[in-house]
């Protein structure tokens, strides 16, 4: 399967990047709804164009989850590279970022132009409130996903310890460094001794 895909990619080399660019331009312009909507759109594009199998797509999801930064961009890079090497990778990133960044800047500009108007204060307060609500919901969804990986007391206990530490440690980078050290020095506090090698562990 992987070999066949590799061969077909080789045959297509040099011809697919415009389609990658157009496909990701469409996603970058139309995938309203945040990360989930964008991943769904990328999956639909990759499978419909037969660029990736479902298994390969899932692998891009897992790898992107352990990559620093915006995970969807990491996934975009992997998909673009799988389709058409470096050209595909650049086409995918440009396609994803060009429309979404342009729209983001235009909306930020709109915000700046109305934020000092007296009529806009109440609506802007409500936007801030709903944004705080979105942030809470995203944290809850991420917490659910993270704890679902290993249904054992060790996950919630470590999470509560990190919340307590996060509340008292002024610099979040220190907590992240401590988390890396804890994982390396006390692995059994985070994964069972005989845990199977599952990709979802990494996610």
């Amino acid at each position: 399967m992987a070999g066949a895909n590799s061969d077909s990619r080789k045959d297509r080399s040099g011809h697919e990047w415009p389609k990658v660019l157009l496909g990701f331009l469409r996603i970058g312009a139309l995938a309203f709804g945040g990360g989930s909507a964008t991943i769904v759109a990328m999956r639909e594009l990759a499978l419909r164009r037969r660029w990736l199998s479902e298994e390969e797509f899932l692998e891009t999801v897992v790898l992107s989850r352990v990559t620093p930064g915006i995970t969807i961009l990491a996934q975009t890079i992997l998909i673009g590279r799988k389709v058409d090497g470096v050209r595909g990778m650049i086409a995918a990133v440009v396609g994803m970022l060009l429309p979404s960044v342009t729209i983001t800047i235009l909306l930020a500009r709109l915000y700046v132009s109305v934020r000092d108007q007296s009529w806009s204060q109440r609506p802007l307060e409500m936007i801030a409130a709903v944004a705080a609500g979105f942030a809470v919901a995203l944290a809850l969804l991420l917490l659910k996903d993270t704890l679902a990986v290993d249904r054992h007391w060790r996950g919630p206990v470590a999470f509560v310890c990190y919340v307590a530490l996060g509340a008292v440690v002024p610099n979040p980078l220190l907590l992240l460094v401590a988390a890396v050290a804890a994982g390396l020095l006390a692995p059994r506090c985070f994964v069972p001794r005989d845990a199977p090698e599952r990709d979802s562990d990494a996610a």
């Binding site: 352990v66 307060e125 801030a128 409130a129 944004a131 705080a132 942030a135 809470v136 995203l138 944290a139 991420l142 917490l143 993270t146 990986v149 290993d150 996950g155 470590a158 999470f159 990190y162 919340v163 530490l165 996060g166 509340a167 979040p172 907590l175 992240l176 401590a178 988390a179 890396v180 804890a182 994982g183 390396l184 006390a186 692995p187 059994r188 506090c189 985070f190 994964v191 001794r193 845990a195 090698e197 562990d201 990494a202 996610a203």
Partner: peptide, 29 residues
């Protein structure tokens, strides 16, 4: 196992930090 434990620990810490940050956003709003 150490590598997987590090990834797991990091994932838990990232979500924990989000919860702490959310508290600041909630009080502001």
């Amino acid at each position: 196992p150490r590598f997987r434990a590090m990834l797991r620990s990091l994932a838990l810490a990232v979500v924990a930090l989000l919860v702490v940050t959310d508290w600041s956003l909630i009080t502001h709003a």
